[in-house]
Amino acid sequence: MADSTDNASDLDPAAVADFHDALKQSKHIVAIIGAGLSASSGLATFRGTGGLWRNQDVMQVATPAGFHHDPGLVWQFYTYRRHEALRAKPNRAHYALAQLAHQIPGFVALTQNVDNLSPRAGHPPDQLKELHGNLFTLICSDKVGCGYIERGNFQEPLTPALDPSKDETTTLGSIDPNNKPRANPVLLAGIARKHAQILGDTYHGDTPTTRDLSSLKAPEQPPTAPTAVIRLSSGLEKEDLPQCPRCKNNILRPDVVWFGEALPLTIVEETEALFNQPVDLCLTIGTSSIVWPAAGYADMARKKGARVAVINICAEDAKNIRPEKDWVFVGDAAVVLPELLKPVVGDVALCDENVGEDCE
C-alpha cells in the first residue's frame, strides 16, 4: 500500500481509510521519529539534499575526539544548531503527535531529534523518549567525576565568545601563523540569512561545509582531501567556552549522543521495555532507518504484532515493507501526518505556548 505524492489530499484514499481503521483500534502505538519531522520547521535533515552531513565532516564536530581536539569548533557548531532550533517553530506534525499522546495513553514516541520541538509542541515528557539527547540540556564534560546536568538552558549566547554579533575580526576566528582567518557556522548562518533576504525565493542555501569552515584563503590540502584529515581551528580557548558551575574545572558540553558514544543505559532499557509487550501500530516518521539502534525498532514492533506505517519524503527509506500489512505514505510529514491522525486528534492547529503565540 503506497502513495507517491506530497499532498495529503492526494493520498490513496483506500490506504488512508485502511490506516484510519487500524489507528482507531490501536491502544499501543510506537512512533520512531527522525530529522524529517522537523524539515518543514526549517531545520536541515542529516542525509537529505542540503542536509547537515552533505560535505560536512561530522568527525570534527560530533564526536568525543572532535571535542577533545577543538571544543571551541564543536561549540561553534552547536551554537549554530541551538540558534536555528530556537528560531524554528513546531509544525503540524509535532502538534499532531502531541495530541495523539494526550488521546492515547499507550502511545510513546522515540525521537532521534535533539531540537526540542516535540516538547515545545506539548508532547507529554513521559510519552517521549529523546534517544539522542537535547540541544538545550548541558552537562559537564566530566560525566563521571562531576556529573553536573542543566536542563532547559535557552540562553543565547552561552558565552561572549560564542556571540555571533561580536566584531568581525573576532567572529572570523583567530589569525593563525600563516595569516589565514577562519569562518565559523554562526557567521556563515548570518551571511546565508542576509542572502535570503536579498534574493528572496531565488536563494537556495546549503549547510556550511568543511571547506566553508576552513581557511578563508586557499586551503593547504587539495579540495579532494578526505575531510577526516582536515584540521580546523576555532581559535577559542577553554576560558571562552561554557564553564561547569559545579566542579569549576571543566567545560560544559551539549547533552547529545555523539558518534562513538552509546545511548544512555536508562533510555535503552526504557525503549526495549516497550517491545516486551504487544504493539498494535508503529509509525516511522522522517527517518532514513539506517542509524542504530533506532533502525531496528520497526522490525521489533513487527515481531510484537504491529502494522507499520512509513511517512517519509523518500520512498526508498521504507524498509522490510509487507505489502498486505504495512503502508508507505510519501510526502512531507507536516502535511501527511495530521491527515493520517485526524480520526483521533481532529484538526491540528499551530500554537507554541512556550513563546506566547496564539493558535492559528
Rank of each mutant, 00 (worst) to 15 (best):
A196L: 02
E150R: 05
K166Y: 05
D326E: 06
E239W: 00
A65F: 04
F67Q: 08
F67E: 12
W258T: 01
A301M: 08
F67R: 05
T111Y: 04
Q76M: 13
P208F: 06
C146D: 06
A189M: 08
P278F: 02
L263N: 10
Q60I: 00
C359L: 11
D142R: 07
V310R: 03
V144I: 12
A189R: 08
Q99G: 07
A228N: 06
P177W: 02
P181C: 06
K342L: 10
S4M: 05
A88K: 04
A294N: 02
T209G: 13
A17H: 07
H204S: 13
E168V: 13
P177H: 07
Q99P: 00
F136Q: 12
R253W: 00
F136H: 14
A349R: 02
R92Y: 07
L188G: 13
H20K: 03
D142F: 04
F67T: 07
V345D: 09
Y80W: 14
D212Q: 01
D18G: 12
S4W: 06
E239A: 15
E261W: 05
K304A: 15
P222V: 14
G152K: 02
M1N: 10
N312F: 11
P105H: 01
A98E: 06
A44Y: 06
L131F: 02
E339N: 08
T227P: 06
S214A: 14
T202D: 15
I29V: 14
F67D: 14
N7H: 12
P254G: 01
K166N: 13
V335T: 15
N249T: 14
N134I: 11
L199Q: 13
A301E: 10
A44T: 06
L283S: 10
G346C: 05
A183Y: 00
L23Y: 01
G173M: 07
P164G: 10
I313R: 15
I149A: 14
T49F: 09
P323G: 12
E130G: 04
R302Y: 10
G190S: 12
A15R: 01
K24V: 14
F259L: 13
Q155F: 00
